[in-house]
Amino acid sequence: MPFSLADVNRVAHELWPLSGAEAWDAPGLVTGDLSREVASIHLAVDAVAETVDEACDGAADLLLVHHPLLLRGVTSIAEDRYKGALLSRLIRANCALLAVHTNADIVRAGVSDTLATRLGLRNARPIVEGATPDVGLGRVGELSEAVTLGHLAHLLSDLLPATASGVRVAGDYAAMVKRVSLCGGAGDSLLREPAVVDSDVYITSDLRHHPASEAREQSHLTGGTPALIDVSHWASEWLWLDGAAEQLRAELPGVRVTVSDLRTDPWDFVIMH
């Protein structure tokens, strides 16, 4: 049974409802003819030159990404600007572009839920609940047994694809941790949430100096918790792609769904003294 882009768009928004997106977000269909048949979908975290080329060279009919290409307003899509160049490349190749962003962060089997599952967290639940108890920002749960903070950092390093920034940790390497909160992608906005404050460790990405410093200084008054683990933004979200691909295959039988292995983390190398 052939599926149109309109069919795929509907399925995507059933799996990752637009109503769950943050007010500042811009998920949804960016370009594409809704009447065109979709036989192949390629998934990636970012719409960048490499993933666009990968999708177009692989004859994909749709590039489905996590991060919206047009998250912030643009006044030109001229091809001497990278967003215009990418959109023109996709349009010429008849490859549509669809973004599922914060609407995919909050759902069951979404970005944070996937990371919690892969870490083996028990009784995982949202840090900030949404419309239903199993939908919301981030996840908090318990490891099956306490481990050292250093051991947990190594587990994450093995679980996530390698990046130049690696895994950064603020806390005592030997401290025992069991209650874990996490947020895939940038999550310093959740640092003061009660579920995070009450955790032994908080795992997220893009922790800025001042919020991280303030959280650690406050933690000194409460026994040193939560410790902080900062991982690559791209890596924390890349884990979700395989599960998303499986969901699409189940809803769209016969459609070829592939996942990009390209590292689109922006950092190439790090120099340590």
Rank of each mutant, 00 (worst) to 15 (best):
E22K: 10
R10M: 05
T31M: 08
S19E: 15
L15P: 03
S19A: 15
R10C: 07
E22G: 03
V8W: 00
E14H: 12
G32K: 01
S19N: 10
L29S: 02
V8L: 03
E14P: 09
R36S: 07
R36C: 00
V11C: 11
G20W: 13
A26L: 14
D33V: 00
V8Y: 00
V11T: 09
E14V: 13
G32P: 06
A23Q: 14
V30W: 00
L34W: 04
T31G: 04
A26V: 14
L29A: 02
R36F: 00
G32C: 06
G20N: 14
W16K: 02
P27E: 11
S35L: 05
L18E: 12
R36D: 00
A21C: 12
L15Y: 07
L18M: 10
P27W: 04
E37L: 15
A12H: 01
A26I: 10
A23P: 14
V8D: 05
A12M: 14
L15C: 04
N9L: 06
E37P: 11
T31N: 05
G20T: 01
G20P: 08
T31D: 02
V11E: 14
R36M: 06
W16A: 10
E37M: 11
S35A: 15
E14L: 14
H13W: 13
R36H: 06
E14D: 13
A21L: 10
S19C: 07
A12W: 09
R36E: 02
E37K: 00
W24F: 15
A12K: 10
G28I: 01
E14W: 04
A23F: 05
T31H: 05
T31P: 01
L18Y: 08
L15Q: 05
G20S: 05
E37H: 04
R36P: 04
L15E: 07
G20R: 13
D25H: 04
W16E: 02
S19K: 11
E14F: 06
V8R: 00
A23C: 08
P17A: 05
A21T: 09
D33C: 05
R10E: 12
D25E: 12
L18H: 11
G32I: 01
D25V: 10
L29H: 04
R36Q: 10
V11S: 06
T31V: 08
E37C: 03
D33W: 00
R36N: 03
T31Q: 03
D25G: 06
A21W: 09
V30E: 04
A21K: 04
A26H: 14
N9R: 12
S35N: 11
R36W: 00
D33T: 02
L29N: 05
W16V: 09
T31E: 04
V11G: 08
R36I: 06
